[in-house]
Design a protein around this nucleic acid. Structure first.
Lengths: 244, 244
DNA sequence: ACCTGAACACCGTTCAAGT
DNA sequence: ACCTGAACACCGTTCAAGT
């Protein structure tokens, strides 16, 4: 919490960049063009600098992403968790989800390597604590945490149709709404044009999610009598449950 | 199921490549060098061909990945599902998992776009059917399916420590072993050197998974007094649950 | 201490042309 | 019908050098 700039007795050229500047610029690019366009080169351009300058502040791109994650986790308001053990577990799980929902680069971070923000660990500890307080052994508590974590990752990582309304008629068992749900600031998920904007796809909505299947460009399949190609006329239309 | 090659009355140059050849070569590359090295160019090299030739058989790289997925789903033995509704649901869920476990490119496919193999849809339908047979409304059944699907994706997508033993002491509630668990052929997950092999990382094992945090190369942080840099000495060692 | 230029070794994809 | 060469517009990262 010291004043930002002039270090006493500093030598050498004063910096024009900083870690914060990188992060801010990264956010701007992310907001404007999506995660597919957040590259070191693009980021440098955003900062009117060169790609190489970034490497002075950041080891590689992964570290940049990790820093973004870290910042997000730090900024996230730390809610008052319920005292009831079960409620606390659910609420913490919700926090873990909300912490990272809506940042589309999360998939890249979570799947790339086992990167995780240390600033989010308090949630993890809260969850495991709650499990133990509920009477689980440490091993079972960890196991339970990981089940919830895997579910959360799935939620964060699979591309979604704009909204996923829960069925209101009957609450599925064991899935009570967390008590103090923190503000879910859902930034607009804008998928960038990932490489080929000319791609022709067919979107089949089924089971509340959109399944996209691309099919060959040139009408009927021109690629010889491979017995796999009989799969190319997708039988999706026959699926029985279309509840989107 | 026709004989592979010579189409009667064919004109033009006979093909040297085929969709199957692509897929086989892709498998070889995947096996030998991991998903990070499966590129169109590498694939062409594997086939002693040019990158461009591939685009005659495949619209783009995504379609190639989708084909790999499709093939996998088709090859997967279709087990006899139990008649008991609840058991059937659990078993089908297990199938959905086992179908894609151990193929490390799955993350890329599932997160890239909402690509899914149509050959795997029978599992999905079985799951939703089971839910309905259990008495759920169609909406609730779909909701339940999606919960399971998200969990499955999480399992498939997060990088894991070699083995994840379940706590044997007490079976967590509601997580019965699926009746006819199909053969789990776990191909060795070898993460390729993803770009920078010189990267120095520190691995912290916690909660049964390894969390890796990279830290700056040059000893103590040389990057000025950014208040975020105080985060760079990771306080992970203080975590209380180290059950790896 | 902080930043740059040039270069390396890659990507996916398009286009027009060749046989 | 099937494939190629050359090119486009990118990547992340390293290295040596400049101020």
């Amino acid at each position: 919490m010291q004043p930002v700039s002039p270090r006493a007795g500093s030598v050498g050229r004063p910096p024009r960049l900083s870690k914060e500047a990188l992060l801010q610029a990264a956010h701007r690019v992310l907001e404007a063009e999506g995660p597919g366009n957040l590259t070191m080169r693009r980021l440098a351009r955003e900062l009117s600098s060169t790609p190489m300058a970034l490497y002075y502040y950041v080891r590689d791109k992964d570290e940049l992403l990790l820093l973004l994650l870290e910042e997000r986790a730090q900024r996230f308001p730390r809610p008052q968790l319920p005292t009831d053990h079960r409620e606390r577990l659910l609420c913490a799980a919700q926090v873990l989800h909300d912490m990272f929902v809506g940042c589309p680069w999360i998939a890249e971070v979570l799947t790339a390597d086992d990167l995780m923000a240390v600033s989010a660990l308090w949630v993890v500890e809260a969850m495991i604590d709650s499990c133990i307080a509920c009477g689980l052994s440490p091993e079972a508590a960890v196991y339970s945490y990981r089940v919830i974590w895997h579910y959360t990752v799935g939620r964060l990582v699979v591309p979604t149709v704009p909204e996923q309304p829960r069925p209101q008629t009957e609450q599925p068992p064991g899935r009570a709404r967390a008590a103090t749900a923190p503000p879910l600031k859902r930034s607009p998920i804008r998928r960038p044009n990932r490489r080929s904007p000319t791609r022709r796809t067919r979107t089949v909505r089924s089971w509340g999610s959109s399944w996209q299947a691309c099919y060959p460009a040139r009408g009927a399949d021109p690629r010889g009598p491979s017995h796999a190609s009989s799969r190319d006329n997708r039988p999706m239309a026959s699926s029985r449950y279309d509840v989107a």
